[in-house]
Design a protein around this nucleic acid. Structure first.
Lengths: 136, 136
DNA sequence: TATTGACTTGGACAGCGTCCATCGTAGGAT
DNA sequence: ATCCTACGATGGACGCTGTCCAAGTCAATA
């Protein structure tokens, strides 16, 4: 059973079948799924679960810091259940696939082959996120 | 007159009034604008310019490497005319505003105050982009 | 100035995500 | 075990961002 689910329950979440299913789908995830993929997999177990619920549930998991959002440039966001372990992302510019990577040293240098997963890496970028003075 | 425009002209671009206006709007840009904002500003000078043309023109500038796309997590992409100078981005999670930053040393460390522009920075992330084995 | 292929137009369309009014239900109270 | 009620789920409408296409227009060359 899901670690994730245990952690959420511990935070006073009302446990519904929908939330349970979403957590289970995320839990076994090595690839990083889009909201629609998560919805499709969840619907295999709970046919009438709605898209809105999947979005709500994912959004809540993200704000609780249990799940991480990965935006893949124009495509659908992907959801990474690995929020507790620090890591970076390797994104395919064509299909949007995401892999976790754990680079060391100079982050803008080329990734070591062992971290490249067969990708042809063409760019590395650093983004800082926060609130600007007017939104702060 | 625009540097950007000169560079584009030098690459054999057919020069139209629409392209000229888009380049001019981008050129004076210290903030980073969305496609719609660029369209609005361009339309002040050339009222009947279409959205499609703005998108086409921006897309071409991006593939020529003259302009850089910045994706701001779910919101509209922003366009950065500063593509020739290496730099990273600081993005407001609420309104999507983007500033260029030039960090040195440990990229995941806190940004120095001089590079923070009044933002409250809460995260730094590194993204590697490329093609995965199946798309490669 | 005539020609022509590249560019522009605008409207339809698609993907991703949000919102809202309504209905259902988990979980505490009895 | 049953009741209550506030919180969650539903699904359909909506909005934003971006793409596509067929038809019309025009910059650049001869």
């Amino acid at each position: 059973m899901s670690d994730l689910l245990e952690r959420l329950r511990g935070r006073g979440w009302r446990l519904t079948s929908q939330r349970r299913v979403v957590a289970q789908v995320l839990d076994g995830d090595h690839v990083h799924l889009t909201a629609d993929e998560i919805h499709a997999r969840a619907a295999e177990r709970l046919p009438e679960i709605s898209r809105a619920t999947v979005y709500n549930t994912l959004g809540e998991m993200v704000s609780l810091g249990e799940v991480m959002e990965v935006s893949t440039d124009g495509r659908a966001k992907r959801y990474d259940p690995n929020a507790h372990r620090p890591h970076q992302h390797l994104v395919c510019s064509k299909c949007g696939t995401v892999r976790d990577v754990h680079p060391t040293g100079d982050l803008l240098a080329e990734l070591p082959a062992a971290e490249r997963f067969g990708f042809t890496v063409s760019a590395a970028e650093v983004t800082y996120r926060g609130l600007c003075p007017s939104c702060g």
